[in-house]
Design a protein around this nucleic acid. Structure first.
Lengths: 194, 194
DNA sequence: GTCCATTTAGAATATTAGTTCTAGAATGTG
DNA sequence: CACATTCTAGAACTAATATTCTAAATGGAC
C-alpha cells in the first residue's frame, strides 16, 4: 500500500494555522492543500467535506480547553476555573485565538455532520452539568439567576478580559487575571446566598 | 427623471434585517435585492460595492450606539456608560444583535472603502479620547492599566453580560444590569487610586 | 513478479456570488 | 412634444470554491 504522505493531522494542523491567523473563513480547501502542497484528492481522501475538517478542528480545540476548566470546577474551585481561560490562552496562544475569537457557528454553519454531533452534544452537556453542580454545592442554589451569575463570572468575564489581547495575538497580561479575580469576588464570593 | 423605487435606506434596511437574523455573511447582494424585489442594477446604482453597503451599515449602527455612551461618559458617569449597553440593546434589539454579536471585520474585511475611512477613524478616536479623559478626571490616571480597567468595566463586561441574550434575540434581563453594576463597583469604584 | 488496497495527482464540474453592461422605461424641463 | 437625466431591468461575465472523477503511482503480501 502507498505510504501516506498527507495525514489527517497534517490537514488539521494546516487548518489550525490558517484559522488562527485569518479566521475560520480563510480555511478553504484550496488554502489548506496549497499550504501543504497536497492535491485536492488527498484532502477528500481524508475528509468527506470542508465542514468535517472545521468541525473536527473546533471540537478538538474546545475539548482541549475544557479539560482544565472542568478539573477546576469539579474540584469546587470557581476562581481557578475562571482563571483557567487566561492561563490556557498563555500556554496555547494559537488555539486560544482560534477558539476564543470566533463563534462555533463560524466553523460549522447550521447542522453539524453526523459523525461529530454526538461529540458536540456531550461536550455541551458535560459543561452545563458541571456549572449546575458548582452552583448547587458552592452557592447552594441552581435557580436561573444563580446559574447566570456563575456563567458570567466563570466564562463570560474571563473571555471578555482576554479577547482584546488575543486580537493582537498577544498573551493576556497579569492585569487580565486581576480583573477576572476582582469580578469573581464581587459576583460570587461576595454573595454566597443570593 | 424616473421616480426612485429603491432608495439607499431601503437597501440598508434590508441588509440590516438580514444581518441581525443570520449575520453579516448572509448579507449577499443577491439576498438583499431578492428581499426587496429589486434588480441588481438598482443596487449598484446606489452602492459601488457590497463592501460599501456593509461598511455604511456598520458605521451607522455603531455611531447610533456610541451616542448615548459618549453622553454618559462625558458627563463623568461611568456606571451610566456601562449600563448604556443593556439599555440600548433593549431599545434597539435588532441593531444590538447586528453590532454586538459580530466583529467589525465581519462586515468589512481588510481595508475600508475610501469614502468611509475617515468616519471610522474619527469614531475610533472620539471613543478613545473619551475613555482616556474619563480615566484621567475620575480615576486620576491614564496609565495603561487604568485604561485597561476602564475599558473592561465600561465596554467589555457590558458586552459580555448582554451577549448570550442577544444570541437568543432576547432583551437583556435585569440581572445583566446587576452584574454590570457589581463589576463596575468592584473594578472602578472600589479602587479610585490604583 | 504479480496483484491489490492505498494514496497521490490534478483536471473537470458545479455552484455561488460580486460585478458589469446594455437596453429601455419613467419623468421633470424647455 | 422632444429630450436629457435618472433609474429600472435582468442577462452576461468573472472569480472563487467545494467537490467529483478517473488515472496512475506506491509498496507490501502472496
Amino acid at each position: 500500500m502507498a505510504r501516506p504522505q498527507f495525514t489527517s493531522p497534517d490537514f488539521l494542523e494546516a487548518a489550525r494555522a490558517l484559522a488562527c491567523e485569518h479566521g475560520p473563513a480563510a480555511v478553504t480547501v484550496g488554502a489548506v492543500i496549497e499550504r501543504l502542497g497536497a492535491p485536492a484528492g488527498s484532502f477528500y481522501y481524508r475528509f468527506a467535506s470542508r465542514d468535517l475538517l472545521l468541525g473536527e478542528l473546533w471540537l478538538k480545540t474546545v475539548l482541549a480547553f475544557q479539560e482544565g476548566f472542568m478539573a477546576a470546577i469539579k474540584a469546587g474551585d470557581g476562581l481557578a476555573a475562571a482563571l483557567h481561560t487566561p492561563a490556557w490562552a498563555r500556554e496555547n496562544l494559537d488555539d486560544a485565538c482560534l477558539l476564543l475569537l470566533y463563534r462555533r457557528s463560524d466553523f460549522v454553519h447550521g447542522d453539524w455532520p453526523e459523525t461529530l454531533r454526538s461529540g458536540v452534544i456531550s461536550q455541551e452537556k458535560s459543561f452545563k452539568t458541571a456549572v449546575t453542580q458548582f452552583a448547587q454545592t458552592t452557592l447552594g442554589s441552581d435557580c436561573p439567576n444563580t446559574l447566570r451569575r456563575v456563567r458570567f463570572a466563570l466564562v463570560e468575564v474571563p473571555l471578555a478580559a482576554v479577547r482584546m489581547h488575543l486580537e493582537c495575538r498577544e498573551a493576556p497580561p497579569p492585569i487580565a487575571d486581576e480583573l477576572i479575580r476582582q469580578t469573581y469576588e464581587a459576583v460570587i464570593t461576595g454573595r454566597p446566598e443570593q
